[in-house]
Amino acid sequence: MLRLLAFFVAVIFFTRFLATLPIIGAIFRIPFLGFWFTAILLSAIFAKLGSDAVDYRARRNLEKSLGAVDTPHHKGKLGALLLAQGRARRAIPLFEEAAVGDPTSLEWRHKLGMARLQAKDDPAAALAAFDSVLEEDVDYGFGSAMLLSAEAAKEAGFPDHALDRVQRFEREHGPTPLSALLRAELLKAAGDRAGANAALDEIPRLAKHAPKNAQSQSWSLRIRALMLRLLP
């Protein structure tokens, strides 16, 4: 009962606040309708905060359970969890330990390269990690190791090496939004603006046909592509 009362007090308070805002304030000044709009908005916010809190607790519990067992597998799994949360720098030492502890695992070396790329920690070391994977399986991750190694090579200052890998990836697996963007960046850096623009023109079509789980990344790539086209 107290929670319900507190919620209605919050709705009244925020309705009055929102009514003072320019442009959108007119909606919240409408009797009854403004109150319900605010109630819906606050309900959505509280639901999101509650869901985030539950997810955070679940992640913390999982981190504790994985960190409690000192094996390469559990260190790698904990590193993968941190990497998925965007905490790439914290994941790096865990992947390093997992890779040393289980030298037969390509997964930990591959994820070590990914973490170094995301953290912008050491692109040359990221390239070395991907190369060690490619030496054993050139098609690892359906070509993802090849494409990520191209990005690492670009960041490490080896554009010719990077372009060669992008082109090899596209020959064997077909172009993707990321491969087209990398190709455009490398061609533009080499002075081939026409080739770069042609590669950029491919991105919307490729993004349209990208798997659903890659759609969010495709939008970020489109923004990068737009910036690349606008910059001199």
Rank of each mutant, 00 (worst) to 15 (best):
E185A: 10
P204M: 02
A156W: 01
M114C: 13
A190Q: 14
L186K: 00
E151Q: 11
P123T: 00
P177A: 00
S216L: 14
M227H: 15
L148A: 04
K111F: 10
L134P: 06
L200C: 02
D137W: 06
W108V: 06
K208W: 14
A214P: 09
D201R: 15
A145Y: 01
H110M: 13
L127F: 03
A145C: 09
M227Y: 13
R116V: 05
A145F: 07
A194Q: 13
L181M: 08
M146Y: 05
A207Q: 05
E172L: 14
G174F: 00
A153G: 05
A156N: 06
A162N: 05
D160L: 04
A145L: 04
A225Y: 04
A145V: 03
M114L: 08
D164C: 10
L200D: 04
V138T: 12
L206G: 01
L181G: 03
Y140N: 05
H110A: 11
D137H: 10
Q217A: 14
H161M: 08
A152V: 04
N213T: 15
A184T: 04
A145S: 13
P177Q: 01
L163I: 02
A162W: 03
A190R: 07
I223P: 07
A214M: 13
A207D: 10
D122Q: 05
A119W: 04
D131F: 06
A153H: 05
F158H: 14
F158T: 09
A162Y: 03
A126M: 06
M114P: 08
L230H: 12
L200S: 07
P175C: 00
A115H: 13
A129T: 06
S218A: 09
F130R: 09
A156R: 02
L178E: 12
D164T: 09
I223V: 15
K212Y: 15
W219V: 14
A126Q: 04
A184C: 06
S179L: 01
V166F: 00
H110T: 08
A153P: 02
S132D: 15
E185V: 11
R205H: 13
H161R: 14
